[in-house]
């Protein structure tokens, strides 16, 4: 019991002391996962909106694929990206393997379906009357879509945050393509893994605590977004009457 208490104490001290190694790992984690989330948002939000609003062939197939890839196992994504980026792979000449860039690429691939899928869900659930009303006031198709997306903005932000949460907690893919090289590609999760294996439990636990804190933060935000949506839905129900 004493040992585990000591481990906890040391872990908290490490976080409070802002140990430089720990800080660099944390900042790389946020940098990599943050960039990946932003990239995933740049591609995933328009894609999700197109899935929700577009009228094109193969939409159902794309939607099914998106939903399927929301549960893409990270190690598989990691392996595929590794095979593509490795020296003898098709994009080997870019020399991206075992760099933060390759980690951002693989995390973008992991976050993209989540951002797209959740964006699709939240835009589809916007009251269709928003579009009809906007069109009735002279909005073009695109402007009406923008109106709907703005209405779904909490959901869209939640989608991006959910994507961030996934990639931040992900270990398999970044391990494969990043290589866990100290102060270059070592992030919270791979750092935790390494130190757990080396028996540096304080350090590993400090990582774990920070990961949990980030995940709590993210979930607090998601819950808030959900409540907000529920509230606007209730408000809509109160002010709307059957015609």
């Amino acid at each position: 019991m004493k040992v585990i208490l000591d481990v906890f104490k040391e872990a908290f001290l490490l976080i409070l002391r802002l140990d430089s190694e720990f800080l660099s790992v944390l900042s790389l984690s946020i940098l990599v996962s943050g960039s990946a989330s932003i990239l995933a948002a740049l591609f995933g939000v328009p894609f999700g909106v197109a899935l929700a609003e577009g009228n094109f062939k193969g939409k159902r197939l794309l939607l099914t694929l998106t939903h399927a890839f929301m549960a893409l196992p990270p190690v598989v994504a990691g392996l595929v990206v590794f095979l593509i980026l490795m020296r003898s792979g098709p994009l080997g000449s870019l020399r991206l393997i075992f760099t933060p860039a390759s980690m951002i690429i693989v995390q973008t691939i992991l976050a993209f379906p989540i951002v797209a899928g959740l964006t699709h869900a939240s835009v589809s659930s916007v009251d269709p009357r928003y579009e009809i009303q906007a069109r009735g006031l002279g909005a073009s198709r695109l402007q009406a879509v923008v109106v709907k997306v703005r209405q779904a903005r909490m959901g869209v932000v939640a989608a991006v945050i959910a994507g961030f949460g996934r990639v931040l907690a992900e270990v398999g893919a970044v391990m494969i393509v990043g290589g866990n090289i100290k102060s270059q590609t070592r992030v919270l999760t791979t750092h935790l893994l390494l130190y757990a294996r080396q028996g540096k439990y304080e350090m590993a636990l400090a990582d774990g605590i920070v990961l949990i804190m980030l995940s709590v933060l993210i979930n607090a935000f998601l819950t808030k977004a959900q409540f907000q949506r529920a509230r606007t839905q209730i408000a809509q129900r109160i002010t709307s009457y059957p015609s």
């Binding site: 009357r129 009809i132 906007a134 006031l137 002279g138 909005a139 109106v147 009457y241």
Partner: peptide, 28 residues
């Protein structure tokens, strides 16, 4: 479409203020 306008039974609002909402069609 822009030569017509439609008012519905339950108005759906887009912005925050009354001013913004009255302006919305012109913004479009």
């Amino acid at each position: 479409l822009r030569q017509m306008s439609v008012i519905f039974q339950d108005p759906i609002f887009f912005g925050r203020s009354v001013y913004d909402n009255v302006a919305v069609g012109l913004t479009f």
